[in-house]
């Protein structure tokens, strides 16, 4: 089987799933007496049809690129990181802490410092699960879920007891120097939308993931381990280290996602800011087949869905989008399996 056929089969599953979920959404819309075509048209014209809407879409996509990369990076090592939600929270808080604490630093120093804090925060949090897997063999799926809840509780405690602005659920503002500027200020485009400089950082992260996975020794080990852990052991690779590093980098990528909200949008840390982005990231990675560059358009698609839901909320409950997201994920994993069986193809 040649490569092109393989790619066609790989793309067919996700596209089919998206189409079916759009049809399902249309049925729901029709059920409540609205015209699906009108709703979808509005959804798309209000998102990609004007520059404010497009800015909103890009803002939402930026976080999803990071969480999508996080899931994909772990998948490459055959690991399952469903803790992006918690890692993003810890990363966001770490970055906010830097911005609140080092008020006198110029942007040349505090921006890299914020990036580093967000990355290390997320990496540390995922690293706990990686360590536990490497050292005790405990399953990373359960541990990352548990760490999600621990992260929420921990951050809630710190915010409520140390950094709270009274009558809110957020911290004080970060220093102006640590702000990642919005594109509307920089270019005058996307007026009023929170689309900001986190996006180029996200693109940078995609390139970084590509380089690590495909061009570095660590990446070679990760791929080998992900493909066959026993072969990796046989080749004298230290599986414990591979697990720890894969989880840490994965968590770090999720942690960087916190920048988009904290440094790019609200300029403070707020409880509950992740808004399921960690879980949607898994869907993004699955559809993009863990390809760091495919993650960009897939994230934008999910961004359109998320913001599109808001634009039609007065006509159709915006949760229709959440339902469709769930269905897309279910269909993708089922359709992939059916394809593999029916056509005897191993998709890439």
């Amino acid at each position: 089987m040649n490569k092109i056929t393989k790619y066609i089969y790989s793309a067919a599953g996700p596209i089919l799933s998206i189409i079916i979920s759009l049809i399902f959404g249309a049925v729901l819309i029709a059920l409540i007496g609205k015209n699906p075509i009108d709703i979808y048209t509005k959804m798309f014209s209000d998102t990609i049809g004007n520059s404010y809407g497009f800015g909103q879409v890009m803002f939402k996509s930026t976080t999803l690129i990071f969480t999508g990369l996080a899931a994909a990076f772990a998948f490459k090592a055959g690991l399952f990181n469903i803790g992006a939600e918690g890692q993003l929270t810890i990363g966001a808080f770490a970055s906010a802490w830097v911005g609140i604490t080092f008020v006198n630093f110029p942007w040349q120093i505090i921006i890299p410092l914020s990036l580093l804090a967000a990355f290390i925060g997320g990496a540390f949090w995922a690293g706990i699960a990686g360590y536990l897997k490497a050292r005790f063999g405990s399953h990373e799926v359960i541990n990352t879920i548990m760490l999600n809840f621990i992260a929420m509780a921990l951050v809630s405690y710190i915010v409520n007891n140390i950094y709270l602005v009274p009558a809110t659920i957020h911290t004080p503002e970060i220093s102006p120097e640590s702000v990642l500027l919005r594109f509307d200020i920089l270019t005058g485009m996307f007026k009023g939308s929170p689309f900001n400089l986190s996006f180029p950082i996200a693109i940078g992260a995609c390139i970084l993931m590509y380089l690590i996975i495909n061009k570095s020794v660590l990446g070679y080990r990760i791929r080998t381990y992900g493909f066959n852990p026993f072969a990796a052991e046989y080749a004298k690779m230290k599986s414990g280290r591979i697990i720890l590093w894969s989880m840490a980098v994965s968590g770090g990528l999720a942690g960087l996602g916190g920048l988009n909200f904290v440094n790019g949008y609200k300029h403070y840390f707020e409880l509950g800011l992740s808004e399921n982005a960690g879980y949607i990231g898994i869907a993004v990675a699955l559809i993009a087949r863990n390809n760091p560059f495919a993650i960009i358009p897939v994230s934008i698609f999910f961004g359109i869905l998320e913001y599109g839901g808001l634009t039609v909320n007065t006509l159709v409950p915006k949760e229709i989008v959440t339902i469709m997201q769930g269905i897309i994920i279910l269909l993708i994993i089922a359709v992939t399996k059916i394809f593999e069986k029916k056509f005897k193809v191993k998709t890439v």
Binding site: P317, I320, I323, M324, G326, I327, I329, I333
Partner: peptide, 25 residues
């Protein structure tokens, strides 16, 4: 369909969260 149990679980949770809110509205 023998697909991944964890992903299915996450997707169903998202689905349930959406559909209950949708019909509640």
């Amino acid at each position: 369909f023998k697909a991944n149990q964890i992903v299915s679980g996450i997707a169903l949770n998202i689905f349930a969260f959406g559909i209950t809110k949708f019909f509640c509205k």
